[in-house]
């Protein structure tokens, strides 16, 4: 058994009430990611130990899901809505233009300085605002929705995000 460090003890305290073999793995992963922004190797180990699972099982399961991440998040995450109502409003053009501004190749990529990442998002039923993107700060759990975008507006937003000048609009949602 690895040495109990302060870091491990803190992770363990987040999940101490969860029981093994009780359908609690997703919850444990969510709690830890909510706290640290990602799932470190150490965290996966502690979760495995606590829930009496093999670390390989924990990683194998966690890596199945898009929302779990295994590296610290970028300072800003742009989540691009891939849904149908947005596609009908040239969201593909918005995606390509934002990628170009960030000088990134495809969704899922991040800038070398870790300032920005752009990821694929799913429609959550605010389609009256199509086309839309979410601008997120993972660590602070802040999420801004910017809707009824034009490509030009998306480019301007992407430029302010790149320059670190983006100011939240207050259309935040809980997360």
């Amino acid at each position: 058994m690895p040495l109990e460090t302060e870091a491990r003890a803190e992770i363990r305290s987040l999940i101490s009430d969860l029981k093994p073999d009780d359908g609690k793995l997703l919850d444990a992963l969510h709690r830890v990611q909510h706290r640290y922004g990602y799932l470190s190797d150490e965290a996966l180990e502690v979760i495995a130990e606590h829930l009496k699972m093999f670390p390989s099982h924990v990683y194998g399961a966690a890596s199945f899901y898009d929302e779990y991440r295994f590296d610290p998040p970028a300072a800003t995450t742009v989540r691009w809505c891939s849904g149908p109502a947005c596609r009908l409003e040239n969201s593909n053009g918005i995606r390509d233009a934002m990628l170009a501004v960030f000088k990134l190749k495809e969704l899922g990529d991040r800038t070398d300085d870790n300032q920005v990442e752009i990821i694929n998002g799913q429609c959550n039923g605010a389609c009256e605002l199509a086309p839309l993107i979410w601008i997120e700060k993972q660590i602070e759990h802040k999420r801004d929705v910017v809707g009824k975008l034009s490509v030009a507006r998306a480019i301007e937003l992407a430029r302010t995000i790149s320059n670190g000048e983006y100011v939240e609009e207050g259309n935040e949602t809980a997360f």
């Binding site: 039923g125 009256e128 605002l129 929705v145 809707g147 259309n171 935040e172 949602t173 809980a174």
Partner: peptide
């Protein structure tokens, strides 16, 4: 609700 919040309801 999710749609209202996206339209700025919390603010």
């Amino acid at each position: 609700d999710t749609s209202s919040m996206a339209n700025g309801a919390l603010e």
